[in-house]
Design a protein around this nucleic acid. Sequence first.
DNA 1: CCTACCGATCGGTAGG
DNA 2: CCTACCGATCGGTAGG
Lengths: 203, 203
Amino acid sequence: MSTGTDSGVKVEIHAPDRADEIRDAALTLFAELGYRATTMRAIGQRIGLRGPSLYAHVVSKHDLLVEIMVRTMDDLLAGYRAMSRESDDVVDQLRLVTEAHVRYHARHQREAFVGNREVRSLEPHAQKVVVGKRDEYQREFVALIQRGARQDRFRVQTPKMAAFAVLGMGIEVASWFRDSGPIREDAIVRQYGEFALRLVAAQ
Amino acid sequence: MSTGTDSGVKVEIHAPDRADEIRDAALTLFAELGYRATTMRAIGQRIGLRGPSLYAHVVSKHDLLVEIMVRTMDDLLAGYRAMSRESDDVVDQLRLVTEAHVRYHARHQREAFVGNREVRSLEPHAQKVVVGKRDEYQREFVALIQRGARQDRFRVQTPKMAAFAVLGMGIEVASWFRDSGPIREDAIVRQYGEFALRLVAAQ
DNA sequence: CCTACCGATCGGTAGG
DNA sequence: CCTACCGATCGGTAGG
C-alpha cells in the first residue's frame, strides 16, 4: 500500500485484485458499448475469464455499475473539497475547482461518459444515491459563485446558471479530449479555469 | 400542410402519420430508458399497437434511431445557418448561433439526450454519417470564432477550445433545464448568448 | 475457475 | 393490425 495523487487528492493505491480488474474491464465496456449492451461474458473475456467466473468476485452486473458511479461522484466531490481548501480567495477557488473538474473529465473519460449516460440504468435506490451526490457537487459550485457574487467579485445575474455553464463546458471535455490530440491536458485545464473566470466576469 | 418556425428555421408541418407517431414514441423511450433497453413492444404500447404491427411502418428499431439522430443534426445545422445569415457582425453572429444552440437543447431535450448518448449504438455506416454532421456543426463554431479572432473582435488563444466550451455548456442545458422550473427558456437563451461573448472576451 | 444449463427477454417473420 | 412463434442472446445458478 502506498499513496499517490489524483486530481490533487490523496487516494489509496493497492495491488489491483480480481474485483478491481473486473471493475476496470466493465468500465471500459460500459463506456464503449453502454451498460445494457455489455455482457458479463465480454467483461470476463477482457481479463481471461468466463462470464460465470466473475460471480466469485462481484455481486452482479448492476452492482458493478453502482460501484463505478458512486466512486466517480466521490472522487469529484473529494477533488472539489481539496481544491477549495487551497485558497481563501473566491476567484482563486473558482479557478482551482474548475481546473480539478476539467482535469477529472479529461483523465477519466470512461467514468464521465458512464456517469452521464447510465444514471437511468440504475435501480431507483442506487439512482437516488448517485443523483444525490451529483446534486451535492453541483450545489458546491452554485454556492461558491453565490459567495463570489455577494463579495462583488463576480458579476452574475443567476449564480445557478453560471455554475451549470462552468460544469457543463467541463463535462463535455470528456467527449472530445484525446490524449493523442494537439491540445495538451494542462493547456485545457488552464484555459477552462480562465473561461470560468470570464464567465462570471471575475474582478 | 403549413409552415412554422422552430429555432428560427422554416420546417414542414404535416399531419402526423403512424410513422411519425412511432418515431415520437421511440424518441421518448430512447431518452428515458436508452436504445437497447427500449423494446418494440413498449414503443407500440405508447400508441396502442402491438410490437409486430410497427413493422408495417418502419424498417427496424435501428432505422428509427438513425432517422431520429440524422434529423437532430440536420435541425441543429439548419438553425446555425439560419442564424448566421441574420448578421454580418461576428459578435452578433456568435450570440445568435449560441442562442439557437441553447434553445434547441432546452426545447429538444429528448433529441439532445439520445443524440449524445446513443452515437455508439449506431451501425458503423450510420455512425459515420451522424458523426460527420456533428463534426460539421462543431467546425462551424470553430470557424466563426477563428474569424472573430482574426478581426480582433475576440480574444482567444485556441478558437477550437472556445468553440467546444460554448457548445459544451449549451449541450448540458438539455440535462438540467425543466420547463416547470424557476428559470425561463428565454432567460437561459439570453444568458448563455452573453456567456459565449464573455468566453471569447468579445470587444 | 470451469462447463452445462435454466428462464426470461426480444427483434423480427409468418400467415392471416 | 393481430396472434403465434422462431432464433438468438444473456444474467445468473448448479455442481463440481
